Simulated scan of single mutants.
Amino acid sequence: MTDDALIGGRLHLLQPARGHRAGHDAVLLAASVPPGARRVVDLGAGVGTAGLAVALRLPLARVTLVEIDPAIAALAARNAGRQDPDMAERVQVVTADVATLARPSGPPVPLAGGADLVLMNPPFNDPARHRISPRAGRARAHSAEDDSMEAWLRAADRLLEASGELRLIHRPEAIGTLIELLHRRAGAVSIRPVHGRPDTPAIRVLVSAIKGRRTPPAILPGLVLADTQGRPTPEAERLLRGGGGLDEH
């Protein structure tokens, strides 16, 4: 186990020394959450990085962390309790499979239609096309068949209120699948490419959508994390170390 500090030392996380660990993806996902969010559900929360970062930045937001692995969910609960008392009081942890949420046989919380925002950092790798980590925890977090994405999006749809927002981070090659799946239940899709450097292809995309809308998709200006020399850009510093939001300047 390690005890790590993120967001300029303002977020302290216990996490396994090996396997799936907190990183920039979760912090960038949290930064994409708009300042008006109040009832947030973090699907596949892991040790709580993204959801806790949201609670840290938005003092009026209440956050539910959903994690399938009981041991990791217990760590998320410990991490929530390690923050300041007000922040800890606004966070709850649910141990559950995403596919069971907001169903009669599923957990009582989070409630169907009870969230104004759902965020997710879903499993990235289709095991049919990518080499999978031999470590079970890392494999679970990073690998799933493409079909599993639909289960995550269906869960988000059940949890969101009318006109609620979905925010997620994924790999660029998933854009086609995401747009196809979101078209059935959401619109106003926006895609923000994330580049490691200004002269390289995007390494991630931040995607947002609004439940029930039919507005066409939009490509937003890209976010660049480092300059050509590898030095963090001012915007990356503001988001990753300063805890700022993409919609806040």
Results as ranks from 00 to 15, higher is better:
residue 71 A to D: 09
residue 57 R to N: 08
residue 96 A to H: 00
residue 118 V to E: 05
residue 97 D to V: 11
residue 44 G to F: 08
residue 65 L to G: 11
residue 52 L to H: 08
residue 70 P to M: 04
residue 109 V to H: 12
residue 125 N to R: 15
residue 127 P to F: 15
residue 68 I to M: 12
residue 124 F to Y: 14
residue 71 A to Y: 06
residue 98 V to R: 04
residue 110 P to W: 02
residue 99 A to N: 00
residue 128 A to C: 15
residue 122 P to I: 05
residue 56 L to T: 13
residue 106 G to C: 02
residue 108 P to M: 07
residue 127 P to I: 10
residue 82 R to G: 14
residue 129 R to L: 15
residue 49 T to K: 06
residue 82 R to S: 13
residue 92 Q to Y: 05
residue 106 G to S: 04
residue 44 G to A: 08
residue 108 P to K: 03
residue 57 R to D: 10
residue 54 V to M: 09
residue 125 N to T: 12
residue 95 T to N: 09
residue 98 V to G: 13
residue 115 A to G: 04
residue 91 V to R: 01
residue 97 D to L: 08
residue 126 D to M: 11
residue 52 L to S: 10
residue 119 L to Q: 06
residue 72 I to W: 00
residue 76 A to C: 03
residue 47 V to W: 05
residue 49 T to W: 08
residue 49 T to L: 15
residue 117 L to N: 05
residue 56 L to K: 13
residue 94 V to C: 04
residue 112 A to K: 07
residue 45 A to H: 09
residue 99 A to F: 05
residue 40 V to D: 10
residue 49 T to E: 10
residue 106 G to E: 09
residue 78 R to Y: 05
residue 87 M to N: 09
residue 105 S to H: 11
residue 44 G to D: 09
residue 129 R to T: 14
residue 120 M to I: 12
residue 53 A to I: 07
residue 122 P to A: 01
residue 43 L to D: 02
residue 125 N to G: 14
residue 105 S to T: 09
residue 46 G to F: 12
residue 47 V to R: 06
residue 123 P to N: 00
residue 105 S to R: 10
residue 53 A to T: 10
residue 59 P to R: 06
residue 80 A to N: 01
residue 76 A to V: 01
residue 120 M to S: 06
residue 77 A to T: 03
